[in-house]
């Protein structure tokens, strides 16, 4: 599904320093029963955000009024576990457009890229410093420049890698189906030859 175009973003950020955040935490399975892509944002990090009586858990970053913005900064191995794309939908629906971490799980990374959420891989040291900066000065602006593949904030900047094809898709709002549909004739022939 084509999404909005992504070129450059300047925003404050929300820190969740935990490592190995799995997609069950991002969106618990009991909220996967919808048949549309919308509305998952209200249950993003549900069990970290609310207690069993649905009261907000004060010290969780999404409930901390100091933090806001379109950039989520999280510990390494973000998005491991289940392939549920609902995790990427929830992150997008909540309003995030970028997730910064030092390491992403493969399936989540693909799902994010397919939903106009940019996963930015930074070094461990950059991540550590970024988390510290945001935690001490929550109004810190983070700039994510996709065109030049550069992330910067306050006193540090770093270049990040992104697959050139995916970069082109994000900048233009294209998706993989657009590309694959152009191959229809070749695929038909391949299918016939291999049935």
């Amino acid at each position: 599904m084509s999404k909005d175009k992504f070129i450059k973003l300047v925003s404050t950020a929300v820190p969740i320093p935990n490592e190995n955040i799995d997609t069950d935490q991002i969106i618990p399975a009991r909220f996967l029963k919808a048949t549309t892509r919308e509305g998952f944002g209200e249950n993003l990090f549900r069990d970290w955000r609310y207690d069993s009586n649905n009261n907000p858990i004060k010290d969780f970053a999404l409930n901390n009024p100091s933090y806001s913005g379109k950039v989520l900064v999280a510990g390494k191995n973000f998005g491991c576990g289940s392939s549920r794309e609902h995790a990427a939908w929830a992150i997008y629906d909540y309003g995030f457009r970028v997730v910064v971490s030092s390491f992403f799980a493969d399936i989540f990374k693909n799902n994010a890229l397919n939903n106009a959420v940019l996963p930015v891989v930074v070094s461990d040291s950059f991540l550590k410093k970024l988390l510290e900066t945001i935690q001490s000065k929550p109004n810190t602006q983070v700039t994510v420049d996709l065109e030049n593949q550069k992330i910067s904030s306050d006193n540090q900047s770093e270049n990040f890698e992104i697959n050139p094809y995916k970069k082109e898709c994000l900048i233009n709002g294209y998706d993989d189906i657009d590309y694959l549909l152009n191959l229809n004739k070749e695929v038909r022939e391949f299918d016939l030859a291999h049935s």
């Binding site: 599904m1 392939s83 399936i107 799902n111 998706d175 993989d176 590309y179 549909l181 191959l183 229809n184």
Partner: peptide, 20 residues
Amino acid sequence: FGIGTSEVEQVLATQCILQY
């Protein structure tokens, strides 16, 4: 291998998936 829903749509529509 496991895929996300956008990729499920791709496979349904094109019987292909983009991979490295």
